[in-house]
Amino acid sequence: MGFVHAQAWQAIPEAQLVGLVDTDPNLLKTLGESIGVSGFPNLDTALREVDVDIIDICLPTHLHREAAEAALAAGKHVICEKPLALSLKDARAIIDAAAAAKKQILVGHVLRFFRVYQKARQLVLDHTLGQIGTIKTFRGGSYPKGWHDWYGDPAKSGTLATDLLIHDFDFLMWCFGPVERVYAKSLAGHITGAADHVLASLRFKSGPIAHVEGTWAYPKGFSYAFEIAGADGLIHFDSADKGPIHTLLRSGSERNASVEVPESPVEISPYQAELAHFLEVITHDALPVVTAEDGYNALAVSLAVRDSIQSGEPVLLPGRTGGES
C-alpha cells in the first residue's frame, strides 16, 4: 500500500512527500530514486532529519500502534492504513494518544472514496431502494503477496476477517449504522491448512441483514461485488463484469500467448481522493468522512467475526443488547 500512497501523494499539489521509511534498503533506493524522495531506515531518523507534518503509516497491522504512538508523541498527525490495529486495546491506545497529542488520527477505509460505493450509499440514504432487507458483498481473489508473508500470520494481519473484510464491514456500517450481532464460518477455521475463505452474517441494529464473503482462496485475480435489496428496488455491481477498457496484448513470440488487462479508470483514484480529503481535514480542521471511532468500530466487528468463527456461536457486539429486534 506504501507504493499506492506514495503515487497518490505525489499527485496532490498541496502535499509534498518528503521521506520514505522502510527497513529494506534496496526498496528504499529503487522507489526513492524513481520518485525523487529520500529514504530512512526507521521513523526516528526520519523525524530527526526531515521537517514533516503528517506520518502516513502503511506498515503491516501489528506494527501500527508502535509507529502511530511514536509519530503522535513527536507531534505529528497520523494517517493509518486499515485496520487501525489488531486489538481493540491497541486501537483505543492509538486514539487516546492522538487526543493527548491534540493531533489527528485518520484511518484509511478507502471504500468510502470509491465512486461506486458512494453511489450505492446515496441510493440507500435517499430511499430509492426503500426499506433495505438484505445486502450481499464479495471481496477477494488469490492469496496476497506481502512482506515476509505477513498476511498469512494471524498475529500480524489478524486474518482475512480483520484485514480484508474490514473494508466491507466499514462500508456497511457507514450505510446502516451499528452491528447488533455476527455469525461466521471460514474454510481456515474448518479445515486445517486451508486458504482462508470467510462467510459472515451481520445483523444491523437498524434492521438489515448482510452476508459478507471474503476469500484469499481463489486460483487468481481480485474482484469485489455487492448487491443491496430493498422493498422498492435492488442494485448490484460486480467489478469482475467486463469494464470500460479490456485489452488483450500479444506477448512473446508464441502464436497464442497473450496478457489480459482490464481497466476501469477514473480521473482521481480513490486513494488520491482519500489522502486529499485527509489533508483537508488536517489543514482546515474539517470533519473527516471516516473517523477514528469508525475505524475502531469496524475493527470490533472484524474481531467479533473472528471470535464467531472460533466459537461457532453468534457474537453480540459489546455494549449492545442482543435479541430478536
Partner: peptide, 20 residues
C-alpha cells in the same frame, strides 16, 4: 498489430431494478 482493446465507455455503472 500488438493487441486488441474493447472500449465500453459507459460500463462504469450500477444496475438498479426499481419496482415502479
Amino acid at each position: 498489430t500488438e493487441g486488441v482493446t474493447h472500449l465500453d465507455a459507459f460500463a462504469q455503472h450500477l444496475v438498479l431494478y426499481k419496482e415502479i
